[in-house]
Write a protein that binds this DNA or RNA. Structure first.
Lengths: 154, 154
DNA sequence: TCCTAGTTAAGAATCATTCTTATCTCAGTA
DNA sequence: TACTGAGATAAGAATGATTCTTAACTAGGA
């Protein structure tokens, strides 16, 4: 999800059958701006508070929930104590460092194809697959440096 | 993990460098008995309470934590509000139903091989992979019936 | 412009988890 | 077997995250 104008945001809210309120607009804006960092409700709240001092944390919680239900956001599974959200609703995977609690995104078309092929062979009865994601767990070697994946196929 | 005698449990605790206390024994017993249902601390507590009325919930939390650190259990990433534990520490995947909040285990050697091969080609720099798991998300078609996967390779 | 269903702010309530501290117990040693 | 110290536990307070409640507000259609 790239930079959207307020009108574009307004429009995508309406398309999802939601009233385009000021609060929803700024929450969606904040989450997309925080893209990649998998923010918690609290993170989003802190982000938009300066410009919107009257919004309440409860509203942020409820709004993020609403967005998840309509599929505009997805919830990231995490081992930590609080829920995290992701504005990237495409199939992608996560690398989770148990040392720094970081979650790094990682997209790989080849992996996606591999899994689609795999699961179409297996048959999962009584279950409609909406999506999948791979979680790599482990530890950063040097906690201060970034994690890098080479040979990613796009 | 199968049915273990108390002495076997006692032994595996000692092997992990933990004092074999009564509480740890019954917690481990309860988690393995609840195998497959990915219990929360509360679930485990309820399970062992009747036979151990003096154990405290705090102890259950702490003990599950300790077991996770030593690798005797693993924490299951879940979208819900509370932490879940799994006595199956082998690489395996989960199917998550967003309707019923159920988590179903699913083991497939072929899938495991596929992913091991894939990640050995990609190089993840500055990250030591300890494990991975695949999460399928979606919805049960008939909430009362079970989910079945056919053609699983063992 | 008016009306109403849906939304929001504020804070109370709830739920999950961690922390604190005094007491207790396991397991090694005399 | 009894003693001892490190580590573990019970109980409940404290914290943190999330949901609930309710009265006031607002977007958007008539």
């Amino acid at each position: 999800m790239q930079h959207l104008t307020r009108d574009e945001i307004r429009q995508s809210l309406t398309e999802c059958g939601l009233k385009a309120t000021q609060q929803r607009i700024v929450v969606l804006e904040a989450v997309t701006e925080l893209h990649g960092s998998h923010p918690t409700a609290e993170d989003v709240f802190q982000r938009l508070r300066p410009a919107n001092p009257t919004i309440s944390l409860g509203t942020v919680y409820k709004t993020l929930d609403t967005f998840t239900e309509t599929g505009m956001l997805r919830r990231v599974v995490s081992e930590g104590g609080s829920k995290r959200y992701d504005s990237n609703t495409m199939t992608h995977s996560h690398i989770y460092c148990s040392k720094t609690k970081e979650i790094v995104d990682f997209e790989d078309k080849e992996l996606e194809q591999l899994l689609i092929r795999f699961f179409s062979e297996r048959q999962v009865e009584n279950f409609e697959i909406k999506g999948f994601s791979i979680q790599l767990t482990g530890c950063k070697v040097e906690p201060d440096k970034k994690i890098n994946i080479t040979k990613v196929s796009k």
